[in-house]
Design a protein around this nucleic acid. Structure first.
Lengths: 192, 192
DNA sequence: ATTATCTATAGATCTATAGATAATGC
DNA sequence: ATTATCTATAGATCTATAGATAATGC
């Protein structure tokens, strides 16, 4: 008996769902959310579009699953982190263009009106900024060497990460994303 | 006779085209490029969708006009600029959420495969980075006070501008975009 | 003549619903 | 019984082409 035979229905269904989510990540990377069709996602997992709707009853439900997946994949920073771990994260990201492309495309779309991912990103950035502030405080205390507070530095840190991703996705040959990010960290760590 | 009567056909046609481009900017801000329909743009200028196609024969042709408009509106930085002019530019942007939203949405979409604005953005960032490097060199010489070269600092400067725009669009109450950008400039200007 | 605009419409999509059929699990 | 999947299809869009009509300009 194969491994597959030993699985019960619940497990198999969960696996199918995560297969579908993975396929959705790919299709969104290629075409954005609005441009991604259920049919294209379904085709990638060998289902018809209607078969896919058995697992996710609407297109928005599938997007929710994609966003939840992300929250698992890269947790919001916690104060245990140190700044040099962020540099490693950026290096790791540089090896996964597809996933970065998915979320960069979604972030861009999310600023348009009534976009289903808008609240998700707004809330996520609130959390990420305060998580980053905590990381900075744990590392430097209430003042960074350059004189700024952790709370004022956090949005800059996040902005640099996101902004570099766009430049890098558009022109990976010309933009050394991890190197540029380390340069930014150097700026933070120096005495003002 | 009214002003309108004095205009010749060429002028009137050019005005119509720029009305359409303005409407397209709005609709793209609301729905992105893929989500923007020609019909929605046409409606805003009191035309049918087919009437609009008289001025721009395809949807992509309209996008090209939108991108050209932008190049006029905010020219690529030139070395005459000083760093504090950039801070004013960011303050100016903070008064124009709609236009920032248009181009943030387009930038996000542009990283998806075969997007018609992709080459535009890739080339634009190449120009903007080298323009920014020139601005920084004019201000600081070959080394910034913090020790980085203008060429290594330019991508960071651009990333901060873009990244802050997303955070600010998603949550304008919580993000002081111009203030954060000035903080970043402080970081650049301090002795390392 | 040329320009501006309209109606009609072809041809592609896309999401979602309805309902059938086959396979799986208590 | 429930779960997985399919076919058929309604109902909305969307872009673009064809061709008519009205208005404008040499």
């Amino acid at each position: 008996m194969s491994y597959g035979d030993a699985m019960n229905a619940r497990v198999r269904s969960a696996e199918r769902r995560s297969e579908i989510v993975r396929a959705a990540l790919e299709v969104i990377a290629e075409r954005g959310y609005r441009g991604a069709s259920l049919g294209a996602v379904a085709e990638r997992v060998g289902l018809t579009q209607q078969g896919l709707l058995h697992y996710f009853p609407t297109k928005d439900a599938l997007l929710v699953a994609v966003l939840e997946e992300r929250d698992q994949w890269d947790a919001v920073p916690n104060p245990q982190w140190r700044v040099d771990l962020l540099a490693s994260l950026v290096e790791y990201n540089a090896m996964r263009p597809a996933i970065i492309q998915t979320f960069s495309a979604l972030l861009g779309e999310s600023v348009t009106e009534g976009h289903p991912a808008r609240d998700y990103f707004a809330e996520r950035y609130t959390r990420v900024r305060s998580g980053m502030a905590a990381v900075l405080r744990a590392e430097y205390g209430d003042r960074l060497p350059n004189g700024l507070t952790p709370e004022r530095t956090a949005p800059l840190l996040v902005a640099v990460m996101d902004g570099l991703q766009y430049q890098w996705l558009l022109d990976p040959e010309s933009v050394d994303m991890p190197g540029a990010f380390r340069d930014f960290l150097t700026l933070l760590g120096e005495e003002g």
